[in-house]
Design a protein around this nucleic acid. Sequence first.
DNA 1: ACCTGAACACCGTTCAAGT
DNA 2: ACCTGAACACCGTTCAAGT
Lengths: 201, 201
Amino acid sequence: MGRRNEHTREELREISLQAAEQLVAAHGLAGLSTRKVVASIGYTVGSLYMVFRNLDDLIVQMNERTLDALYGKLATAVANRPSPVAAIQALAQAYLSFALVETNRWLALYEHRLPEGQTVTDPFTEKVARMFELVQHHLALLCPQRPAADIALAARALWSGIHGICVLSLDRKLESVGGRSMQEVAGSLLDNYLAGFVGRN
Amino acid sequence: MGRRNEHTREELREISLQAAEQLVAAHGLAGLSTRKVVASIGYTVGSLYMVFRNLDDLIVQMNERTLDALYGKLATAVANRPSPVAAIQALAQAYLSFALVETNRWLALYEHRLPEGQTVTDPFTEKVARMFELVQHHLALLCPQRPAADIALAARALWSGIHGICVLSLDRKLESVGGRSMQEVAGSLLDNYLAGFVGRN
DNA sequence: ACCTGAACACCGTTCAAGT
DNA sequence: ACCTGAACACCGTTCAAGT
């Protein structure tokens, strides 16, 4: 057998990633497998390994696409905001809303762990850094005379905080009882942190 | 074959959980399997199902033990603190330090997802709630005349924030570049949030 | 009652063989 | 060069059979 040649290498990569994204969106990262991907694109197991090094490689590439989509949402959300505070609030809301709408794909970003020794790929860290700088930039606009180290620390605290709110809100295991929305909690975090940060130069 | 009777049901449960904890501590949740557990305690696959409903059940029970250990650390850390703020800081530091020391077991709390329809067990949510109330209690001491809803919201924001800092710091994938320690970032979050929260009644 | 181990349905990965 | 599908080593879960 063999020799179908219906798709180029690049097309095969594309439809594989699309199939993976659909599987993850529908059933979570745990519902993804090489055999399900190839079944849904009409190929057999071996073919996946022509295009991806292994399943981890496929997941990393899928997650890179998710990061790109997330960055797109953040970038448009932050554009043309009247003030740095409004910009930061818009970033947080966009992050929450992406996590809420694309829950399973967003979760896959954090659920996937590389095997023991392996380290993360460069484009991946670059995409993460790019998002992080979005926050940092608007925080610097808010407090122009603050040293860069202060800004970096605050950006990291806020970013991590918003992220934590998403994680715990979307994980029904830890969703602590009192039913407040993600948005409320995030608003409280931002408002109070920024009040403290700005007020204490 | 059969009939060994070297261990009671309860002993079997105990050594299985201990073996699981060792496997997770050494290789992460992904390194845990029913077959590895039984191999390390000298039984065969079938025996596990005398004591646990399935692997998920074993993991949930293991995670409950981790939650108990974490609660113990938090409770002793918070005891006899001179002020509510000191108590809250001690809680945060204890949480960070547990995550840092028991990284893989702590990660397993969040990595494990129940299968599709299944919901979380009651003792589990209760243990989470108990930890959460620790924060809430000391926040209430800090601001006695604030309405309970404010306190609950703040506790959730802070708790989620500290959690997010742990998650992102321990995940090498997302560890944003500038190398600040978890403790520094958490300190920044607490100090600024509390300054904002207390100052704005 | 306790425990085994074969059996089944999955899984990721490799690779000789076919076109 | 492309693709298949058998093969291998794993996995979770069940259950007839043994003591």
